[in-house]
Design a protein around this nucleic acid. Structure first.
Length: 443
RNA sequence: GCCCCCGUAGUGCAGCGGCCUAGCACGCUGGCCUUUCACGCCGGUAGCACGGGUUCGAAUCCCGUCGGGGGUACCA
């Protein structure tokens, strides 16, 4: 029975890397019919805030991840850790260390610990941490992706397991919880591959078999450093606010470090669960490419039912008039023209708000003028409007393609806009005439 | 510095010793379609990091170099 967890510090908004890790765990659990557990590593009191957890939960729900157990908070599991610590103490795995980092450095130790306190017999009246008595041999971590990762004996450290304030350190809480929760597979970022050595030592000391480790490669920014704040929008919710569909975002994220092996790229959550396998996991880091995400979002938008699309646009931006939006959507003006939901507003704004009149070329006046007079008496249908525009262009001997440009400018405020006939139809006869006249009078 | 991981076009993937004149997708780009902009369709672009082996044969296996990333905390 597969039991996996997403364990992270609630550092506010879960960033893309966190979500991808959660996603991999979740997809794996769902594929295997296993259990997905959410654990919050908030031993640091600064991080033990309910609002942070709420926000993390909001993020998880938005992307479609649900959890079978949890969220378990490490900040509430102190008693359990204390029992683990006393066990370790009884079995002789821990020893008191009174050294401060400065003292260690003063001894000429640049990194790691020289085991100074390991053999000391006195017990000074000073604060102490508890260090783990690491064995004097190579330690091997069996990782699904990296293989047998061997840490040479000289690099194996007597790491601090309990801080001088009595709180337990990440490796300890992490391992203790994985044992208690009977975790079978640990999928996490490769940034803590090295830390797995401490985990393995602790599993052994506690007489538990280590889970299968799967350290997934990291997501990098365009500059190839680990994706982080310096790369701009990295919080997952920022993508919701930016008009990305969660299914597109998670689809894209899933492909960063994993491939189904079928060549498929656009896959629903269900399909991804169906295809997910540890075998498809990648061993090298992946660069986050916003362009491909945009493309994928576009693809998802294109296949969304109109009503669904409308609801999502309104949910994101309630200020957009629903009736106008509905018309634009029904006339298929928007769906193939936006990469994100957030673009809708600017794309269709001129349909319900008169754009500032911009200057039109002198020669264009005749065009606008003739069209205006045709529109005054024309039937009010897209077909009739098309006839009016086309006949104007023909009668004035204008270029078939370039001829209507001034009309776009007059109506939409730009040469690039949604389809003209429908736009004119939607804004209505009075408004259309007013805009044409306004454009003529600017010059 | 030391330790660990990784290395196929700009990016993400496929390739698992001969089927590779290295495939797909994004990007970029030419064209068609078209009332603008898009969509769609057709085409182009660019790569096995380098050097040694092993082998009849290597993108695929081995070694080295170089390059990238991560770690080196009483952070996770």
């Amino acid at each position: 029975m597969v039991r996996v967890r997403y364990a992270g510090a609630p550092s506010g908004d879960l960033h893309l890397g966190n979500i991808r890790t959660a996603l991999f765990n979740w997809m794996f659990a769902r594929h295997e019919g296993g259990t997905f557990i959410w654990r919050v590593e908030d031993t640091d009191p600064e991080r033990a805030k309910q609002e942070l957890i709420d926000r993390a939960a909001e993020t998880m729900r938005w992307v479609g991840i649900d959890w079978d157990e949890g969220p378990f908070r490490q900040s509430e599991r102190g008693d359990y850790y204390a029992s683990i610590v006393s066990r370790l103490l009884e079995d002789g795995w821990l020893y008191r260390c009174y050294c401060t980092r400065d003292e260690i450095k003063a001894r000429g130790v640049s990194s790691g610990y020289d085991r100074f306190c390991r053999t000391r017999t006195d017990q000074p009246d000073a604060p102490f941490a508890l260090r783990f008595k690491a064995p004097d041999r190579d330690v091997v971590v069996h990782d699904r992706l990296a293989g047998e990762v061997r840490t040479p004996a000289s690099e194996v450290q007597d790491f601090v397991a309990v801080r001088s304030d009595g709180s337990v350190v990440f490796a300890l809480a992490n391992t203790a919880d994985d044992i208690a929760m009977e975790i079978t597979h640990v999928l996490r970022g490769a940034d803590i591959l090295n830390a797995a050595t401490s985990n393995v030592l602790l599993f052994e000391a506690l007489g538990a078999a280590p889970p299968e480790f799967v350290h997934v490669p990291l997501i990098l920014g365009p500059d190839r450093s680990r994706l982080g704040a310096r790369h701009g929008a990295v919080g997952t919710l920022a993508y919701r606010d930016g008009g990305y569909l969660p299914e597109a975002l998670t689809n894209y994220l899933s492909l960063l470090g994993w491939a189904p092996g079928t060549g498929e790229e656009i896959m629903s959550l269900e399909r991804r669960v169906e295809l997910f396998s540890l075998d498809g996991l990648q061993t090298s880091n992946a660069v986050f490419d916003i362009k491909k995400l945009e493309w994928m979002n576009e693809e998802y938008i294109k296949t969304l039912p109109v009503d669904e699309l409308r609801d999502r646009i309104v949910a994101l931006d309630p200020s957009i008039p629903r009736d106008v939006l509905q018309q634009a959507l029904d006339m298929e003006l928007l769906q193939t023209r936006i990469k994100t939901l957030a673009e809708v507003r600017d794309a269709m704004r001129y349909l319900y708000e008169r754009p500032p009149a911009s200057e039109v070329a002198e020669e264009a006046r005749a065009t606008l003028s003739m069209l205006a007079s045709k529109l005054e008496t024309s039937d009010w249908s897209v077909e009739a409007i098309r006839d009016a525009v086309q006949s104007t262009v023909e009668e004035l001997g204008l270029h078939r393609r370039r001829g209507p440009k001034p009309i776009f400018v007059a109506i939409a405020g730009s040469e690039k806009a949604l389809p003209l006939y429908e736009s004119i139809y939607i804004i209505g006869r009075d408004e259309a005439l007013a805009r044409l006249r306004a454009a003529m009078s600017v010059a």
